[in-house]
């Protein structure tokens, strides 16, 4: 009972905070709302019986990635944009968002319609760190490897894209 109430409360907090993060003009506020939303998500994970994912959510997203965002924002000294500076988004900007939202809603409704059991939710279970580790590195080891490879590809790509012409010439001179 309490868990259900908490779930809906946290869901509302997560949705509200994410919405606020999108409409904030001040980037630092946006980051703080996003952190709040991440926290709510972490607690939802905890409620659903995945404490390890909850902890990782906080450590990785709120503790590292958002902190780096904040770092960049503070170093770049981005001033909040005023209402006169930007125009309201037109249809061209809204249409992808609406399309995505429509797809999501349709898919959810379809899933519930095709499988009536899905609307009742999965039974509550509890994953200890040990179970989680076994699942991650035994059952889904290949998938985890592929994803980590993708991450390193992405890192190399980012390095390549971010390299300036001068640095590239410098490197070629050295070799």
């Amino acid at each position: 009972m309490i868990a259900t109430v908490m779930f809906y409360l946290l869901g509302a907090v997560a949705l509200g905070a994410t919405g606020l993060a999108i409409i904030q003009r001040n980037p630092v506020y946006a980051v703080i709302y996003l952190v709040k939303s991440i926290f709510a998500l972490a607690l939802i994970f905890y409620l659903l019986g995945a404490p390890l994912v909850a902890a990782l959510q906080v450590i990785v997203y709120a503790g590292a990635i958002m902190v780096l965002f904040l770092f960049v924002i503070m170093m770049l000294e981005i001033t909040p944009t005023s209402a006169t500076q930007c125009t309201a988004p037109g249809w061209a900007q809204w249409s992808p968002v609406l399309l995505l939202a429509l797809t999501l809603v349709t898919l959810t409704l379809l899933l519930i319609g095709l499988d009536p059991l899905a609307s009742e939710g999965v039974p509550r279970w509890h994953a200890s760190p040990r179970d989680f580790g076994y699942a991650l590195f035994k059952e889904y080891a290949l998938a985890v490897k592929i994803i980590s490879f993708q991450l390193s590809f992405a890192a190399v790509g980012a390095f390549h894209v971010g390299m300036t012409e001068r640095r590239r010439a410098q490197l070629e001179d050295e070799s």
Partner: peptide, 17 residues
């Protein structure tokens, strides 16, 4: 907590805020 170490790391990473 069975994730006590991670809890400590998570909370201490919040201290920076």
């Amino acid at each position: 907590l069975n994730i006590g170490v991670l809890y400590f790391l998570g909370v201490s990473s919040m201290a920076v805020y």
